[in-house]
Structure formats: C-alpha cells, structure tokens
C-alpha cells in the first residue's frame, strides 16, 4: 500500500473512531428510547433498543465517514487529474475476509442477544391473573374468567403477572399495548397468549395493530394499571354493576 493511501486510511479511521465513541456515549447517556415503559417486558424491549442503537452507531459511522471522506478527498478536481483514472485495485483479500468475519461475528452476537431477549420476554407459563381479550370489528372486550366479570377497558393490578388470552370473532386483529411492549395478533379460529407484568400505575391504551377494515383506526380501548386495593374495589364495583 502506498504511503498516501495509508495516510487516508489512518485519518478516516481516526475520524470514524472518534465519531463512533461520541455516538455510543450519546446513546448511553440518553439511556432510554421508548416513550413509556410501564411493564417488565417493555423494560426488556427498551434495553434491546438501547443496545441495538449503540451497536449500530459504528456501522452507521463507517459508511457515513467513508462516503463523506471520499466525496471530499477523492473528488476529481477540474484541471487536476480531471481525466485520469484511479488506481487499478480490484480487491483486497485480507479486507474482504476481515469484513466477512466481523459482520458474521456481529450477527452471531445479535442472534444470541435476541434469543435471550425473547426467552426473557416470554418468561414461562406462570401467572397470577387471567384475562380473556376478544377482538371484533371494531372493539375490544375483556373478561376475567376467575373473577366472573367483563369489561370494556383493561384494568390490571400493578406488579402481578397477567396472562392475556386473545381470540377474534371475525378477522385478524392485533392486541397491542405500546406502554407494555407487547403485541400479539388475534386470529380467528386460534387462541394466542401474551404474558405481561405491569410495573407502573397509570392510564395507557390498547390499540388494534393489524389492518381490520373500516373501523381499524378507531379500534382502541383504555388500559389502567392500578394498585392491588384499587383493583379489588374495581372488581367489586364491576360485580355490583352486573347484578340486576
């Protein structure tokens, strides 16, 4: 490699290293990407967001620095070398192999990390409370089979592990609660489940995330995460309302 070619690599490499370090530091300083994290599962998803963003910074910078540096330094100047060609480099064995090894290594790491994340999110069958969510054009209905009540909003006690079994009466819908970091399709003829542990008391929303026709846009319902005591009170109130 010529002296000048090496100089270009060193300068661009240094810019890349500094830009990547700054970028990663910025991502870690911000520390959170999801707007609302109200469940154990959303915490895992947010952690994955932060890690993927940190990993993608050097990749992004590699191409951006390569492009910008080339555009500035290797632009043919009129008059000076204006009609000349670049050096006849057809490839570089070590660089090609190195690129393959690094990208394969990254993929291996991401695949392992994603698999662990999936297993963590699913977190086994154990649960404290069962809720049956039924989707139909274009509304949500919730039933609590162990408590014998039904509701148009999803009310759950904080800190308990809730298993939501999801069915559809007509077309494919999707049960999505962004604040909980969960989403699962409601498929006619099948029962699907998600398990979620809410961690923050507050009001959120469930929305249909799979195109389901005319009323898809409006197919939303309220979600409330309440304290154990408030949940007891709400259950009692629902039972009373159901009495004739």
């Amino acid at each position: 490699m010529g002296l000048e070619a090496r100089r270009h690599l060193v300068i661009a490499g240094a810019i890349w290293a500094v830009a990547s370090a700054l970028g990663i530091a910025a991502v870690l300083a911000v520390g959170r990407i999801l707007p609302v994290v109200a469940s154990r599962e959303a915490g895992i998803v947010d952690g994955a967001f932060v890690l993927l963003t940190a990993v993608s910074v050097p990749v992004l910078m590699l191409v951006v620095v390569g492009l910008v540096y080339s555009a500035i330094r290797f632009r043919a100047r009129p008059g000076e070398d204006g009609e000349g060609d670049g050096p006849p480099i057809h490839g570089h064995r070590a660089l090609e192999v190195g690129w393959l090894v690094v990208t394969l290594g990254l993929v291996g790491f991401l695949a392992l990390y994603g698999s662990i994340g999936l297993i963590e999110i699913r977190g086994g069958e154990r649960h404290d409370l069962r809720v049956e969510a039924t989707a139909l054009q274009w509304q949500w209905r919730f039933a609590y089979p162990d408590l014998g009540i039904t509701s148009k909003e999803l009310v759950v006690p904080v800190g308990e592990r809730i298993q939501v079994t999801i069915t559809s009466r007509d077309v494919v819908h999707s049960f999505s609660v962004p604040a909980f970091g969960v989403k699962m399709d409601a498929v006619p003829g099948r029962t699907t489940t998600v398990t979620v542990t809410p961690t923050e008391i507050g009001g959120y929303g469930v929305q249909c995330a799979e195109l389901c026709g005319f009323g898809h846009t409006r197919m939303t319902a309220d979600v409330a995460v309440v304290s154990a005591a408030d949940f007891e009170a709400w259950v009692a109130q629902q039972r009373q309302a159901a009495q004739p």
Binding site: L34, A42, V45, L52, I121, S176, G181, K183, A209
Partner: peptide, 12 residues
C-alpha cells in the same frame, strides 16, 4: 429482525 424490538415495532 430482533424479536424483542420487532414485537414493539411491527405494524407501526
């Protein structure tokens, strides 16, 4: 591609 972030992002 990553399943945990996909669950959050898909259909958005």
């Amino acid at each position: 591609a990553d399943v945990p972030t996909n669950i959050y992002l898909t259909d958005s």
